[in-house]
């Protein structure tokens, strides 16, 4: 971050639901090409943070800037919404459209690009995630991992400057997590700016340029050195959180069996 304008900047985000303060003044920025991973326990406000950044939740106060341009907190204009893409946890593909129809919808309807242009782009995106063969399938016939890969293509089709991923593998079977996360790592290698919320710690460590840990609406710890963060977090809060992913190896089975002889 050499003083250049951050691609995505969140300033003093505050958000409450009723009496519950979910985001209590969050300042964060993501540089162009940077991959920021947001970690934290359930209910710490991670998802709300992404939803606020993309404009799905109105802010109580604070600002969201994309490439230095202020994006109003509510009812943002379609041209601004296109600059930030998002993929959700649950399968959110449009069931009434084919894979290709899902990927080309926004380019054609919102960006008024020609069908051939939209399909050409969809071709290269779907090829990249290995799903061009499935272009005429409906979402209901795809596996969870395939759907999430299509959802990523759909988000990328509008050429966003930043992509937000909200626990994109949380609803997947373990063997499908990999196929999705490999795509994300590939995108990171391609220089896409991303802000990722995940519970996959090994993936977080592999993909992150920077890690932020959120706790009770505050940033508990930030680290520019993910391997160090995962090995030896600076704050007790982060240490406690990371330790929830470790299991103590129980001390072997007592000799002999449980059955009485």
């Amino acid at each position: 971050m050499s003083g250049a304008t951050p691609m995505l900047e969140l300033r003093g985000l505050r958000k409450s639901f009723g009496d519950e303060v979910v985001l209590d003044g969050i300042d964060l920025s993501v540089a162009s090409g940077e991959v920021l991973v947001v970690l934290g326990p359930s209910g710490c406000g991670k998802s709300t943070l992404l939803r606020c950044a993309v404009g799905l939740e109105p802010l109580d106060s604070g600002e969201v800037l994309v490439d230095g341009n202020l994006i109003s907190a509510t009812a943002r204009d379609a041209s601004l919404r296109q600059r930030v893409g998002m993929v959700f946890q649950s399968y959110d593909l449009f069931p009434n459209r084919t894979v290709l129809g899902n990927v080309t919808l926004s380019p054609m309807v919102v960006q008024h690009r020609s069908r051939s242009d939209a399909e050409e782009q969809a071709h290269s995106l779907l090829d990249r995630v290995g799903l061009w063969d499935k272009r005429d399938s409906y979402p209901s016939t795809l596996s969870g991992g395939q759907r999430q890969r299509v959802a990523i293509c759909r988000a990328l089709a509008m050429r966003p400057e930043v992509l937000l991923l909200d626990e994109v593998t949380a609803a997947l079977d373990p063997e499908m997590v990999r196929e999705v996360l490999d795509v994300v790592i590939d995108l990171a290698d391609g220089g896409l700016t991303m802000m990722i919320v995940t519970h996959e710690m090994r993936f977080a460590e592999a993909v992150a340029d920077r890690v932020v840990m959120l706790d009770q609406g505050h940033i508990a710890e930030t680290s520019d050195d993910p391997p160090a963060f995962f090995r030896d977090p600076a704050t007790p809060r982060a240490r406690a959180f990371l330790s929830t992913f470790d299991y103590r190896r129980r001390s072997g089975r007592a000799s002999g069996s449980l059955t009485k002889e």
Binding site: L56, A78, F88, D92, F94, L105, V110, M158
Partner: peptide
């Protein structure tokens, strides 16, 4: 989530209704 996805893709409320919500409801 269908409304959210459409919003994030930049669709207006009318576009969301015409392209996403109504076809699913009719089905």
């Amino acid at each position: 989530i269908q409304y959210d996805s459409a919003y994030v893709l930049g669709l207006s409320r009318m576009q969301t209704f015409v392209h996403i919500i109504l076809p699913q409801a009719l089905a």
